[in-house]
Amino acid sequence: MAEKIRVLLAKPGLDGHDRGIKVIAAAFRDAGMEVIYTGLRQTPPMIVDAAIQEDVDAIGVSILSGAHMTLFPAILKEMKEKGAGDIILFGGGIVPDEEIKELEALGVAKVFTPGAPTEESIRFLREAVGKKKSDEKIM
């Protein structure tokens, strides 16, 4: 049986705008992925803990509050500290080009801006997960 893509979708920040992330969740499900949705107001430690427990290939976050330059690095730091640096981190939000470059340099795999079709994110995720290789031995 081919391994399924498992992806965690989370919504950090205090606001409750979850329309976009729910659309993405439905699109990923319809593309055959297993989507774990964590709900609203997740802190970086909550997100990374959930990602580890769920053993996901990728974490997707939706950040609309303008706090992306704080939240993405905080999640990355948390991932590294908890030995989960190999999980793909991507996100969506209103982020200017220069900051997207900055975030990508830090280790965010991809940032989607408003209006990006869901197909694009599905394609991205499939490719990124496909490239991921683990050489760890189970036993």
Partner: peptide, 20 residues
Amino acid sequence: LPTLMGYDSDHARSLGEVGK
């Protein structure tokens, strides 16, 4: 947002959101 969610400005969850 902290006020809307019932957190005081000094709450950990309010960090970065006060007065925004």
